[in-house]
Nucleic acid binder design. Structure first.
Length: 487
RNA sequence: GGUCCCAUCGACUAAUGGUUAGGUCACCAGCCUUUCACGCUGGUAAUAGGGGUUCAAAUCCCCUUGGGAUCACCA
């Protein structure tokens, strides 16, 4: 049987990086085995529904390079792929469960249930729904139940969990997991608004959609026995389960918004590249080999195996993500990066330059930044005259006689035919040697006058890109200011 | 608290009974050098603790400790 997996988010907001990892692992697994990866929208909670969230999810996943074989957008033979469009199915199957005595009607109000649980909590025990105390078809009897329903009373359908059994299932990542039914609550399957709960809907859909492997986050592990019970109640064959380790905050709690960005959108707008995010997130849980860190999507697909996925949670550490980001930035072409730089400049309201000039800046800075957005700041002097001069740098490299030493060199710069970095380098080197100086004795003052700061690309490369006119103008300006004691 | 899950350097991971416990990020040092980076070389750093099983344990079993998840008419 060919592999069919699904990513089943609820459209309640932005896509979380943990969700991205789950989607990615489903995708990698499916593609590794030449199977299908399906997107199903689980919108059974009408209170938390967020408009456009589902479209946004698809857009973000597509940005990441994850395409689904079947989805609300694309359709497929097992649709609809939105749970709110499958209500009839859930209702029908819930009714089937009732008729088999695997589920029952319950009429308790929210207040009654709160009270029931509070009472138990006070005695220090479980806080379960008590089947023989609540108002339900067990305590009320068949005819009273029918009457209530006929009269239009609100009801839910609850799973009839068997008394004293052990429920075991095999998890591909964790091995056998066993839970006693006495620890399982009579879970609500169908809510009073006619919508199914997650438990019913996901089991029904996974079965109906022919899902072979349920790959989801570890937070679902404790409720999996309920799902096993449902498969049994329906008499359906179960898919295989694989519960992925959680993504963690620095303090090892489940990754959450409170401790930094977790929305994939935030990483996109921060300027991370898809290759970096996918490579990083992909390796949060396993590594196909012992001594390789850089993986393309294709290589991840090739090397993916659920059996290799770790059991323990993984801390989401931005330092390594940034390293990937810097690495991938350097793999982009200068042309591509220049285009990105132009977009960045525009968004900052800065005047752009010719593509040619931007590419030259990229060449100078691509090994000095992790993000394109750093360039307008780090290379500010490539866009405008330095607004200020670093005082420490000034103090360290500007000596009493610097002006006298450098003036003749400036004259040489004025007269040279070629204003290229190689020519500038040779000219300066000759000059320095004749004067009995060291190259760095003049390079630093030059850097100071022209860029205003202590760090940057190679000085002669920088001068070449800036051009003779601009360099000389900056030098003159600096000297004038110096004479006026304004520096 | 009940139940379940988990445990290799600070972080991500490799080693599925036999390795000087490997790699990457970060950190430190050196090289390169024209500053900052990039790059290169080297270094610090881990099997939570205790019992077993075995000729041999990071690996299998048990206990302890620690951490996490979950206990809704949310997913």
């Amino acid at each position: 049987m060919s592999v069919r997996v699904r990513f089943a988010p609820s459209p309640t907001g932005f896509l979380h990086v943990g969700g991205l990892r789950t989607a990615l692992y489903n995708y990698l697994f499916a593609k590794h085995f030449g199977g299908k990866c399906i997107l199903r929208i689980e919108d059974t909670d009408r209170n938390r529904f967020v408009e456009n969230a589902a479209d946004n999810l698809i857009t973000v996943l597509r940005w990441a390079g994850i395409e689904f074989d079947e989805s609300p957008e694309k359709g497929g033979a097992f649709g609809p792929y939105i749970q709110s469009e499958r209500l009839e199915l859930y209702n029908k199957l819930a009714a089937l469960l009732i008729s088999n005595n695997k589920a029952y009607y319950a009429f308790d109000t929210a207040e009654e249930i709160d009270e029931m649980r509070a009472k138990q909590a006070k005695d220090g025990g479980d806080t379960k729904y008590l089947r023989n105390i609540g108002r339900n078809s067990f305590t009320l009897g068949v005819s009273a139940t029918d009457e209530l329903i006929q009269s239009g009373a609100q009801y839910v359908i609850r799973l009839n969990v068997p008394e004293n059994e052990e429920i075991s299932f095999k998890d591909i990542i964790r091995g056998d997991v066993t839970v006693r039914t006495s620890d399982i609550d009579d879970q609500v399957l169908l809510k009073s608004d006619g919508f199914p709960t997650y438990h019913l809907a996901n089991v029904v859909d996974d079965y109906e959609m022919g899902i072979t492997h349920v790959i989801r986050g570890e937070e679902w592990l404790p409720s999996t026995p309920k799902h096993v019970l449902l498969y049994r109640a329906f008499g359906w064959e179960m898919p295989q389960f694989a519960h992925l380790p959680l993504l963690l905050n620095k303090d090892k709690t489940k990754l959450s918004k409170r401790q930094g960005s977790v929305a994939v959108e935030d990483f996109i707008s921060a300027g991370y590249f898809r290759e970096a995010l996918i490579n990083f997130v992909g390796l949060l849980g396993f590594n196909p080999s012992a001594d390789k860190e850089i993986y393309s999507m294709e290589e991840l697909i090739e090397g993916f195996s659920l059996e290799k996925v770790n059991k323990g949670g993984a801390v989401f550490d931005l330092q390594k993500l940034d390293w990937f980001q810097g690495y991938y930035l350097r793999t982009y072409s200068n042309t591509e990066l220049a285009e990105l730089l132009e977009v960045t400049l525009k968004s900052l309201g800065m005047n752009s330059r010719t593509q040619e000039y931007l590419e030259k800046i990229i060449i100078l800075f691509k090994e000095r930044v992790t993000f394109i957005k750093e360039i307008p700041e780090k290379a500010s002097y490539m866009f405008a005259k330095p607004a200020e001069f670093e005082q420490d740098y000034f103090a360290k490299h500007w000596k009493e006689n610097t002006i006298e030493l450098i003036l003749p060199l400036v004259n040489i710069y004025k007269e040279t035919n070629e204003f290229t970095h190689t020519a500038l380098h040779d000219l300066t080197k000759n000059f320095v040697e004749n004067a009995g100086l060291k190259l760095k004795e003049l390079i630093h003052p030059l850097r100071l006058m022209i860029t205003g700061r202590s760090t940057g690309a190679g000085m002669f490369e920088t001068m070449e890109v800036l051009g003779r006119q601009e360099c000389l103008a900056r030098i003159e300006y600096f000297i004038k200011m110096k004479e006026k004691e304004n520096l």
